[in-house]
Structure formats: C-alpha cells, structure tokens
Amino acid sequence: MFEARLNTSQVLKKVLDAIKDLLNEATFDCSDSGIQLQAMDNSHVSLVSLSLRSDGFDKYRCDRNLSMGMNLANMAKIMKCANNDDTLTMKAQDNADTVTFMFESQNQEKVSDYEMKLMNLDQEHLGIPETDYACVVRMPAMEFARICRDLSQFGESVVISCTKEGVKFSASGDAGSANIKLAQTSTVDKEDESVVIEMQEPVTLTFACRYLNSFTKATPLCNQVQLSMSADVPLVVEYRIPDLGHIRYYLAPKIED
C-alpha cells in the first residue's frame, strides 16, 4: 500500500497551484524514494518535473511502485477543502483505481476524507540530458514573477540576456519596449534577496511570456528561483521546495527563422 503524510496541507496546495495552470492531468509516480511527476503542457512547449522525496514527508510508505493518474482540477477541488494547517494523508491500495485524501484538523476534532478516481494516462517520458549550463542565475522568486508579469504587457516574448555583469529581460511590441536589468548583488548578508550569476559564456535567448508566467505560480514555494540557460536549448526554471524536493520547468526557446 501507499501512504504519505504531511503535517501541513499547505505545501501540497502550493505544489498543485504551481502545476495546474500548465497541466490538466498528470501521473504521480510513487516509489520507495518518493513521488515524481513529469508532464508536458498540451502544446508540448514546456515540461514540468516535480520531485518530492520520501524523507521530506512526515510519514511515508510505498510497498510497491504505483502510478496514479490524476485530474488536477478534481484534485484542486479536494485540496480546497483542506485548511492550510490540516494534516494531509494520501492513501492508495496496491493496484487501486482510487486515491484517498484525508485531512485532520490540528486538534484532531475534524477528520475529512475524499476519494478520487484515478485515470489511466498515456505517459510520454522524456529523457532530460545532464547539461552544464552556460549561465545560471539565482534571484528572488518574487522579483522574477514581477518581471514576467510586467514584461508580458509589452509583448508575447521575453528576451533574456545574461552576461557577467547582470541579466537583462526585454520585451517589445505595439505599445513600445521594456528593458529590466538586474545586476549581481554585492552584499551577501541577505541570501534570499540576492542576485547571483554564474557565467561560463554569455547567453541570449527568447521565450514565450505566457509559459514563464505560468511557472511563476510556484513563487509561494520558495524565496529564490534559479534560471539555467545555454544557447539553443530549453531554459530551466527551478524552485526548491524546502526539505521536500523541487519543481523544475523546462521551456523550449523561440528561435529565429
């Protein structure tokens, strides 16, 4: 059987919010080491890769590998019924066609359970090559969200240029053009607010705004976001989930015809 418990429901609510914009349904692959999810958006432009380690759960048991296909809109209906500080337990029998979400209030006086039908989803698993990226930028997640939101007013695409000096985000369209430059921060005392750039080679890439904006739904998970870029390959936008795992979004670049 499979059983995974988190002492607060909030983190799974945030994880779900971070993926349900891009994905209508997804398969949660459960094993002894934890829960993995890999899925492309409908248009096959981006890929979501979620990893939740078994040791990050307050209780975790998975006797046999289990693939649970879930409709994320239905899962969201259920997660909406949990208070942030409720204990959450996900449970499924081996070879089951349902999963149960149980929520327990802090004082244990309210216990709710919701059973959801699982789906058989066609799984396309993509191999993500190990790559050394030419530029890796770490910056405040809120700042990245703000930049994506602001620039999407001006065009459908964002150009990201990274050099040793800093990272520049640009957009242009009928209304005009916009450029936001962030320099590497000089002080190291506030790690959460820092902008750090590790550059092997300068990179300039163009990406669709709407996907970047969807990725920023993960902002509540983490103070910092990491952007990894190399010429002519997908961007990686990574949010770490403290003590539990990470969510990585891969976005195919736009290329000049």
């Binding site: 096959h44 432009v45 993509l126 191999g127 997908p234 195919a252 736009k254 015809d257």
Partner: peptide, 14 residues
C-alpha cells in the same frame, strides 16, 4: 520572426 520550438525537439522520448 521567431518560431516557437517544441520541448520534444530537445529531449528524447524514452
């Protein structure tokens, strides 16, 4: 003048 590529162009199907 920019064309959107697909993620499957970069990552092989396993």
């Amino acid at each position: 003048k920019h064309r959107q590529t697909a993620i499957t162009n970069f990552f092989p199907n396993q």
